[in-house]
């Protein structure tokens, strides 16, 4: 079972590389930011899997904090950076 969990964690880590391609390619800021958000979700899954393999339950707390704060980053993007860009394009 441990092997399965760790293999899944590794698969998700490789998935981050695929997401990185979207961050670098863009083309818009929203594409990059959403890919970054996807990283957050993937990291939560990786942490939960690692918590299961290592038996260290504190990692679930780390996953919880990640999941909560990723939403705050997304809101900061929409409220600060993104609206800015839209007005820039319009003017």
């Amino acid at each position: 079972m441990q092997i399965l969990y760790l293999a899944l964690a590794l698969f998700l880590l490789v998935n981050l590389g695929a997401g990185m391609w979207r961050v670098l390619r863009g083309p818009t800021a929203a594409d990059r930011m959403l890919a970054g958000q996807l990283f957050g979700t993937t990291a939560v899954a990786v942490l939960l899997l690692l918590a299961q393999t290592t038996g260290n339950v504190a990692l679930r707390d780390v996953a919880l904090v990640f999941a909560l704060l990723a939403a705050v980053t997304a809101v900061a993007f929409v409220r600060r950076a993104w609206t800015e860009e839209r007005t820039n394009n319009e003017s």
């Binding site: 970054g36 957050g40 990291a43 904090v65 990640f66 909560l68 704060l69 990723a70 705050v72 980053t73 809101v75 900061a76 993007f77 600060r80 950076a81």
Partner: peptide, 10 residues
């Protein structure tokens, strides 16, 4: 990963 992102975006 959490607060610094929001601070940097602002």
């Amino acid at each position: 990963a959490g607060l610094t992102g929001a601070l940097l975006l602002a």
